[in-house]
Design a protein around this nucleic acid. Structure first.
Lengths: 344, 344
DNA sequence: TTGAAAGCGCTAACAG
DNA sequence: CTGTTAGCGCTTTCAA
């Protein structure tokens, strides 16, 4: 069955295509009776104009997209949510692309989105978290940004001047460290994350610094890298607890890892927070799902997404747009942290 | 800066646009030297063909989309994951649309996707879970399905003959009920979900039936509806525990609710599973994150997504395609269920 | 208010 | 192997 077009409508309503186009878009006045007739035919056939043809000539698709590494990790849906709402408000259609953590897929999507002429790309996670992003990968993003607004969320690309929206993760980690120090802890560990990722690097650095400010230090055997998963948190914590003098507080790279830590500690019969304190990062929905509820750092994830879309909108409409925006995280104290053992 | 087109490339490479098109698509043989020359120019300008123009003439966009109600609920990313992988394999680009649970947004996306000429839509959650979907809403989906393949995941629309892929949720609930009965429980409750949703209805019905098979019954005050959230699970369970004779086993509509149930029980000092058993549904990543780990029903969520894409592919390629496929769920016994108290 | 006609960027006959 | 030409379905001058 042949696709019905604006011509078919025009013929049946006995007007020109121009007129049909006009009633469709309200681009110019149309006599009420004509308009009605056209509308009737449109309704009758449930005609829907072809967005491809329209975009082709108007050179705008009204579409923006987000590339994420893993939609299964609750942090990303949270960002997506913020973006999607803002996009709707601004009249954009919003699409999500999942790279599954593979840089190759990121490249693929970058290319497809360019070909599909989206009007902006929000890039979160993946290569932009690499401390040393291979220049070929970085260049792709930079090249893409020449043709349309690209904004990086919680990441960056060395010397690239791309638009950014991010959380001050170092500040967040410092908050976490300060918190356990205030509670009297002196034996503090940091677990999770990967050494080559800026997220991890920044947090570790901030924790170290904060400890040193208080005359403490982060021992080598108490800085354990791994992944961002529950399993990793569990394993790393188990390792920590195997040590002769185990730490009394563990700062985790994210909530997943922290939940793993809780599991490991509980399995050994330790009470939280009496025997050991645990701090997460992200304030994901999970943080109140576990027992005890997680003390964590919240980073206003929705706002991150919202700002990214707003930025794209500004750029596309010639509005003034800042190059980068930092969001300050907050500490949320729940049940998984308490005074250091023996502190009374 | 004017967008560079196939014409610009043609001129600069001193060939016709046809030739450029040919090297771009490999549609016809091109002399090696010519090809090389063209490629050089393309590379030089980093030219990317306009997918809109191409799709317009070829009448295919290579794109399929999924509409979900809430990407924040871990069930959906899981389905998405399965779909996205299969889509890639089949050469489709895959986009995700989040309706935020609003039927209005679903309609909007349905319309936009039609206009954008996607080659298939996977619909999951939302209106297709309504026991009595308003006919206007249902009609929209049916109409959409006239123009392209639409497959419903874990839902349906009365007398519509749409393609479906779904889990036998009743069988899953029966599995859960049988499990606790086998453990000697006689005082059994069901919590969570909404009375007007088929997911809930089917499960409740199956549980009732299974209990009756064993000479038991599901008491009115032990069938508590609410939402699908952790908070709901917690509240409903609290209500249950306030009763003079509280149940010894609680079957929950999903994992979120079950986690809430665990929280409520733990807060009252009950031991799980010694004092009370709890069963979830979905086997989401959360189910192993909590303590104790959740006994739950798994529904092969990835496969659900994969099958939906496969179905679309089959339809679009004139391959034989079944109208509906049922997946059998499995019970996964973990730590949250045990013998009924006093059963020795 | 309305219509004729040009053209967005690309592909696909149809001829060479 | 390569080029000419006619559209895909829509919007937009320009005239009427």
């Amino acid at each position: 069955m042949k696709n019905i077009t604006i011509y078919d409508i025009a013929k049946e309503a006995d007007v020109s295509v121009t007129t049909v186009s006009r009633v469709l878009n309200g681009t110019a006045p149309v006599k009420a009776s004509t308009k009605e007739a056209v509308l009737r035919v449109i309704e009758k056939h449930k005609f829907q104009p072809n967005a491809l043809a329209r975009s082709l000539i108007k050179k705008e698709t009204g579409t923006i997209a987000m590339i994420v590494p893993d939609i299964t990790n609750p942090f990303f849906p949270e960002v997506f949510w913020g973006s999607e709402n803002e996009a709707r408000e601004k009249g954009y259609t919003f699409f999500l692309c999942n790279s599954a953590g593979e840089y190759g897929r990121e490249s693929e999507y970058l290319s497809i989105l360019r070909e599909k002429r989206v009007e902006g790309i929000i890039f979160v996670g993946g290569r932009i978290n690499l401390a040393n992003c291979p220049s070929a990968l970085a260049q792709e993003v930079v090249d893409t940004a020449k043709g349309m607004p690209v904004v990086l969320v919680n990441g960056h690309l060395a010397k690239s001047q791309l638009h950014r929206v991010y959380t001050d993760e170092a500040a967040g980690a410092a908050l976490a460290a300060q918190h356990v120090i205030d509670l009297g802890h002196r034996e503090i560990a940091f677990i999770g994350g990967m050494e080559e990722l800026t997220t991890t690097i920044q947090k570790v650095k901030a924790v170290k610094q904060k400890l040193e400010q208080h005359g403490l230090s982060l021992r080598k055997d108490r800085l354990l890298y791994g992944e961002f998963s529950i399993a990793a948190g569990r394993e790393l914590t188990a390792k920590l607890l195997d040590q002769a003098d185990r730490p009394t507080a563990v700062i985790c790279v994210n909530d997943f890892t922290a939940i793993g830590a809780i599991k490991a500690a509980t399995e050994r019969g330790l009470r939280i927070p009496d025997d050991i304190s645990i701090v997460g990062f992200d304030d994901s929905p999970l943080s109140t799902a576990v027992i005890p509820e997680l003390t964590t750092v919240t980073q206003n994830t929705n706002e991150l997404g919202r700002l990214a879309v707003e930025r794209i909108y500004q750029i596309n409409n010639g509005l003034p747009a800042k190059r980068s925006t930092v969001l300050q995280p907050k500490l949320i104290v729940r049940q998984s942290t308490g005074p250091a053992p023996g502190t009374t």
